[in-house]
Design a binder for these strands. Sequence first.
DNA 1: AAATTTTCCGTGACCGTTCACGGAAATATG
DNA 2: CATATTTCCGTGAACGGTCACGGAAAATTT
Lengths: 354, 354
Amino acid sequence: MDKGRKITINDVARLSGVSKGTVDRVLHNRGEVSKESRDRVLRVIDELGYRPNIYASLLASRRQHKIICVIPEYMPGEFWELTERGLVKGGEYAADYGIEVKTVKYDQYDLESFQQACSRTLEERPSGVIIAPLFRTETFRFVSELKSRGIVYMYIDSKLEDDSYLAYFGMPMYQSGYLCADLLTDGRKVRKVHVIRIARDKKGLSDPTVTRRAGFMDYMSEHYPETEIENVFIDPKDASAVRSGLDRLFSEEPDPHKYLVMFNSRVHLVADYLREHGIVTCRVVGFDVLERNLTALKDGFVQLLIGQHADSRTEDAVVAMTEWLLLHKPIARKDNYTQMDILNRYNCDYYLQQ
Amino acid sequence: MDKGRKITINDVARLSGVSKGTVDRVLHNRGEVSKESRDRVLRVIDELGYRPNIYASLLASRRQHKIICVIPEYMPGEFWELTERGLVKGGEYAADYGIEVKTVKYDQYDLESFQQACSRTLEERPSGVIIAPLFRTETFRFVSELKSRGIVYMYIDSKLEDDSYLAYFGMPMYQSGYLCADLLTDGRKVRKVHVIRIARDKKGLSDPTVTRRAGFMDYMSEHYPETEIENVFIDPKDASAVRSGLDRLFSEEPDPHKYLVMFNSRVHLVADYLREHGIVTCRVVGFDVLERNLTALKDGFVQLLIGQHADSRTEDAVVAMTEWLLLHKPIARKDNYTQMDILNRYNCDYYLQQ
DNA sequence: AAATTTTCCGTGACCGTTCACGGAAATATG
DNA sequence: CATATTTCCGTGAACGGTCACGGAAAATTT
């Protein structure tokens, strides 16, 4: 394909008997071209295998793009920090192309704050939006507004069922629960499993871990229908409530050899309890590669973590959107289910440095 | 940093009282600039926070770069196919920058063919070389030749101990063996483990799986010193020899509940035997995500695979070298140990589509 | 048929670099 | 001091696109 000189827009223009202005109009669907010319140009482009020089294009183009990413605010070390880290990396990439990437955050427990985030986003007049849709109804409203304004958008983490989104990057939630059950039971017949859950009032919140739990339950009933599954609810915001919840669990049930699982990223809460009480007899499986979870993994209080490279996932989203905005490069795959990484103490060290 | 208009080379020129030509000379250390001018320009660049526009730069620059990748030739479905797939993807990226990426292949069992590959590579006059160094001594000779010609190079898959390489992308071999042992034994006391190995005459060949085996053995002697480890040698090129080798194994040892492991990518050979004989009682762990290994995994003849995304690894190498050649962007990390992915039948589906 | 509108297209300035070329000034040489 | 050489620097034409502008030709209206 690389036969000496590069093929330029002028080559295309000459061979199709028009000017480069017309070729440019065809390339960008800017109209004002007769069907005949258009077809001729298209054919020549195809024959020559012409590919525009993106540098020349970027250099000459005066457009300014902005990508806004709408995610929940977080405390250091929490799950969403990973997401934003990927955003920053993607932002560096985009900056090379003169694209600005900004984050707009909202309180994931406060609908109004999400609405404010949405309107702030619109004020920024972005070319594209990347959104983690925790509030279903409100997100629907938001994306239809985006659509009407011609702003493209992508989902990360979880997605809604509309089909105007450009792409989705996230974990296959159901399968992650299924996998989790397989890893927890590990081929052994287990009498009882404890699911540690977070008690929260959820009005209008779409909780992705619901799907994950469904996958888990299905695996269990398919493979071990006789295993008892007990829910333990704790309040993550109240350390003493966590402790008392687990205290009750460990005092009521004499068997120290428990199977514990958590479907959100807070398995370190359980690990901390185990560490405090010197309990090393449990099999614990959790999700997401947070610093604190990793420590628990290395120290043996958590046996396995299921990771998803939340950072490179958002980075991928930013990159994909950048290329879409700039080069109109088609999105390779609309639904991108990230791989589920199984981490134990022997392979986790090589996970973060990717 | 983005205060309205971008700062251009003309701004720098004006403020330091020289022409853009001089600024350009300073920027690229092309000499022919007096010390005073140079200092002045440098200071203005610093004050203004000037960053060259890479598009304009790339557009105007007439240099032609070529990257050659030297890897073993392979049959469809073999390990090195993955590597080349990443090369192709990286090549598409590089093509956007006007960089050509070519592969030069050699017979990994034939030293002479490797030497030929090396000289063919030199003939191409590449700017950079990416090499999978299976022949130690000869590779040393080759890279020192590259060095003397000012050609940069990177290692993939495994690396040698010189320190002029620009970067290395590969799996942590020792740790992968360690991990493998942990996965194979799975917390259970195992009486005996069978290591299926390939019999080959290796003259001057540096076999990376040696290191992997060392990691495996160390884990075993640290955790299960009493476990017996037996080597079974087979010849992968001779199907009947594979069969007879495994026949002997399964006839001599009555216990059908065996623990089998293979350190190269050919665990599918074992799986095929098991499938043929309907043996589903073994625990089998292997390496690398080949199509045939995946099938074996899904069908339950292999329990776990350790993967390394060999494709995106080479892609990373090409991308890193592209950015190095073009923008002199420093290599983020010299030694890039790819993560070790643990695959079972429940998460392998999401692995390939990355 | 003249006037108006629409459709379609070519032209050329511009984006921010790179680099060959040529020349002025400074320095060295005879 | 004249000449040759070196040092240093400015100039301007690319590079391959984008896009505003203006105008010719065709279609429509009056």
